Amino acid sequence: MYSLSDFDFNLPPERIAQFPLPDRSASRLLHLDGAQIIDRTFADIVDLLQPGDLLVMNNTRVLKARFFGVKDTGGNVEVLVERVLDNRTVLAQVRASKSPKPGTKICLSDAFWVTAGERAGEFFTLHFDADVFDLIETYGRLPLPPYIEHAAGEVDENRYQTVYSKEPGAVAAPTAGLHFDEALLDKLRAKGIRTAEVTLHVGAGTFQPVRVEKLDEHKMHTEWYTIPQATVDAVRETKAAGKAVVAVGTTSLRALESASQSGQLEAGSADTALFITPGYKFRTVNRLITNFHLPKSTLLMLVSAFAGFEEIRAAYAHAIASEYRFFSYGDAMLLTTKEIY
C-alpha cells in the first residue's frame, strides 16, 4: 500500500514553465514505453499513433473565473468561481477577512453586484442578477494556476485554452490539450487517427495537494463530466478493431473511466470523485497524453497507476535531469497502461 510520501519529489523552481512556447506543438515529449524512456518532440505524436486509434479530448473551456471586489460593508474580497450551477447561480471560493453571511451584497470588478447565499462546504453560493456567463466573460480574469507567477495577459487568454475548447465551465485548462494546434490535428486526421470529445469541467481542486499520509483517508474533489453517445460509439468501434483509445489528458481519462465503472463505457452526465491510485484497473483507456504533475498530487498518483509506480518515478527523475518544462505550460508525456481490465 502506497502512502503520500511515496509521491513526493524535489522539483527545482526553474523547471516550472511560466510561459507557453511560441508554438503549441513545439514542446518536448517524453515517451515512456514500458521501462524505456525516449526523448521526443510533441509533433512526433503523429508517428507514435496508428491509423484507427482514437484520441479522446476534453472540450471544456476555461472561464474568466477570478474577480476582485468589495462587500457592502466595505471589506475587500477575492472570488474564484468553482462551478456554474445555472445561469444565475455559482459556487465560488470567497477570500475575505470575514466570511460573507447570507444576504451580503458584493460588488465585483466595480461593475456588478452579487448576493451571497448559503455555504456549501468550502464554497459559497453566489446569486447573480444577470447571465452568469456574460458577466464572467465581460468582467472576469483568467485564473492561471497558483505556480504561475504573472497575472494573466493577452497571450494567456489564447494559450491557456485548447484550440478545440467550446463548453465553458472550467477554472483550469485540460493542459495536455494545449500542445495541439490545427495543423497537427490535420496531420493526425490525414493519417486516419480519429477524434472524439468528452466534457469535464476542471475545478480548482486539481491543484490541491493531498494532505493525509494514508491515501484512503483523502476526500477527492468532485468534477462534472458528460460523455456523448457518439463518443461511446467511437470507443466501442475502436476497441472492436483492436486499436487504442488515447486519452488527451487526465481529465479525459477520468471522465472515460468514471463512465466505465459498470464494466463498459456508458453515455451520460454525472459528478465524479473517482480517485485513481496504483492498483486501479483501467477499463477503457489504453494510452495517455499528459503533462507533468505536482508532487503529492492526485494526478501524479493517477499516472503512477496507469504506467507503473517505478516507471513514473524513473521518468520524472529523467525529466528533471534533462531539463523538461513542468506543469501547465510545460512539456508532455506519452504513456501506455500496463494492463487494462
Rank of each mutant, 00 (worst) to 15 (best):
P209G: 07
R159G: 01
F180G: 07
D23Q: 15
E323L: 10
S25T: 13
L294H: 01
A273W: 10
S304A: 15
S97E: 12
T199D: 14
W224G: 03
P12D: 07
G140P: 07
T206Q: 02
Q36L: 14
G140C: 11
L185E: 12
A92L: 08
V202Q: 00
V90I: 13
Q229I: 09
A17N: 07
T231F: 12
T336A: 15
T272G: 05
L21H: 06
V245A: 04
V56D: 02
M1W: 12
V232R: 00
D181A: 11
L91C: 02
K281I: 06
P295S: 10
H218N: 10
T60W: 03
W113M: 12
A65E: 00
R211F: 04
S99K: 15
Q93V: 14
G242R: 03
A314V: 06
G308A: 08
G308S: 07
F326I: 10
V232G: 04
T199Q: 11
G268W: 10
L29T: 05
K101N: 10
R66C: 01
R61N: 08
L63G: 06
L184P: 09
K105R: 15
M301I: 05
Q229W: 02
A176N: 00
E118I: 11
A151Q: 13
I38P: 03
A247S: 14
R283E: 15
D331V: 01
Y316F: 10
T175R: 00
V210F: 02
Q50M: 13
Q208T: 13
R119Q: 13
K98C: 01
R211D: 11
V246P: 00
H293V: 11
A247W: 01
L185H: 08
A17S: 09
R40H: 13
D6W: 03
T175G: 07
D110L: 09
T138S: 11
A151D: 13
K105D: 12
Y139H: 15
N58K: 01
T89F: 04
R28M: 04
F180A: 09
A196S: 14
E217F: 10
I312A: 04
R28D: 04
A234N: 02
Y324W: 08
A172F: 01
T298A: 11
L49T: 15
H31W: 15
A321I: 10
L335T: 01
K239H: 13
K239E: 13
T336L: 06
V303W: 03
G279L: 02
D331L: 02
A173M: 10
Y2Q: 10
R141A: 12
F68N: 12
F309N: 07
V94K: 00
A204C: 07
P13F: 05
H31D: 13
L185A: 07
S99P: 12
R24H: 03
S260E: 10
R119C: 12
G242A: 04
I37P: 00
V46W: 05
P22G: 09
A43Q: 13
I136V: 15
S304G: 09
F133D: 09
H318P: 09
Q261Y: 07
V132K: 01
A321F: 08
